[in-house]
Amino acid sequence: MDYFLQQLINGLTLGSVYGLIAIGYTMVYGIIGMINFAHGDVFMLSVFIALIIFLLISSLVGGLAIAVALILVLIFAMALTALWSWAIERIAYRPLRGSFRLAPLISAIGMSIFLINFVQLVQGPRNKSLPPILDGGFVIPVGDGNITLAYKQILIIVTTAVLLAAFWFVVQKTPLGRAQRACEQDRKMAALLGIDVDRTISLTFVMGAALAAVAGVLFMVQYGVVSFSDGFVPGIKAFTAAVLGGIGSLPGAVIGGLLIGLIEVFWSAYFSIDYKDVAAFSILAITLIFMPSGLLGKPDVEKV
């Protein structure tokens, strides 16, 4: 029982990270129907940005409370990652709007290769590891054992919840969110009605990247180690989450993320840790084959 609960907590923590990245995939897919292949690498970049900012802050102002430091890291990482994502969209995707369908996908793969090698080049190929940032936690006795609810797990789940609520508000209640939904429905019509479509799409990328950066900061706090190649697998898993939840659906992305996190953790805990990625990829394939609209997505009716 305690083992199960412990894994549940671990799964939810991991799932929060996946869910935050998945939103970026699902929003971009929703608005321009494109798989932003470089999104996983944007996430990886954000972990590096967060890591450097964290080191900078701790070396400049030594005695700063960890909470204040993390909030500063979060703000900087979100802003700077968003800037990168904006630039990527502007350079690699916007010129290809309305062009050949494969072109943006190839361009995104190119961008992904570029980001991986750029980070490898400027930061070196070795793993970067930090000393544990936030140690300790609550130990809760359950039955005849204990479960540990680490402070950083609480931080991750709470931050995810708060930021998702804020994000939900933006998408549902602000003119920006309305413009996004209009562009999703019909980009041409939205443009005719005076919506700046390019700007809306850019902002979608920016928002997706900012949430990926939140995931990046949380990833840094949780694992404390990152390398240039760490974007691909979380990226694919987050994409799996987006597909599982129903691509284009925001709550779907979060639910999908949590499910993927739970499945991965439970698979490792009860079956085989070697095949945990195989499990994730299999879920991706099975979902797409048998339930292509996911849990909350709209069914895609073939028009004749």
Binding site: G110, I116, N117, F118, Q120, L121
Partner: peptide, 21 residues
């Protein structure tokens, strides 16, 4: 050689932007 894949990625983006087909 460190720049090989970096340039490869950049070339992919550039060629798609210039000649998407």
């Amino acid at each position: 050689t460190q720049y090989r894949m970096l340039l490869f990625g950049m070339a992919m983006v550039a060629m798609m932007v210039c000649r998407p087909r």
